[in-house]
Design a binder for these strands. Sequence first.
DNA 1: ATGGTGGCACCGCCA
Length: 259
Amino acid sequence: MVLRVASFNANSIRTRLDIVIQWLKRHKPAILCIQETKVRDFEFPESSFNEIGYHVIFKGQKSYNGVAIVSIEEPKSIIKGLEGTDDEDARFISAIYSGITIINTYVPQGYSIDSSKYQYKLQWFKKFRTFLERYLSPSSPIIWVGDLNVAPEAIDVHDPKGLLGHVCFNPEVQQALKEVKEWGFIDVFRKHHPGVPNKYTFFDYRVRNAVQREIGWRVDHILATKLIAEKSVDAYIDLKPRLQERPSDHTFVVAEFRI
DNA sequence: ATGGTGGCACCGCCA
């Protein structure tokens, strides 16, 4: 069977509920990881997912951050947060689905290189790597999904010269992500599109017709440990939701595994 | 173009 896993930064799940529900009905993924839900848990629109046959788990806060995992299978061994502050907790959720660990993260954006928020971002990657070392093994099947707020290579942004030094595009933050990858993750999207430019998942609202003009960033990712990455058969970005009315600034990324 | 848009909460902050 094919296991379809997707990621979407909703930039408010309540504002984007129709887009998400329609997308689920059409694409029928086994797993959809959502970031920036921007809603407290008691206000999360859980029943909308249940009504179309999906489970959903979530960890959020008011206005900012918030993550959720939507699934066909029932989640087991749910972990919400990295046992830190409210901000940290609303950036991490994980569970096991049919023996596969799904980790959904919304990595801090960082604001600017000289801000403490950027240091917090770098520290977040270290804390996440420590979590992996402590609780998981790279020889087990793990899929790490999320808005990682890092474009890993020059090919992942529309203007690598102009954007160099941005909090999401500089050697230091790329190294921070790399150190987590080196624990045992493979970039499943890039595996299927090696060296292919203009593959973006985020388009700034402030840039007019950014999708049509291919002025974007690849910051939303699906990675997997070796065992499961070897079973991926396809990966793609669905730009159609970014062209709808009232879109999120991000769009859907999908990976498919034959398991 | 040193701007621009969008969500949410509250009259600024974050992306």
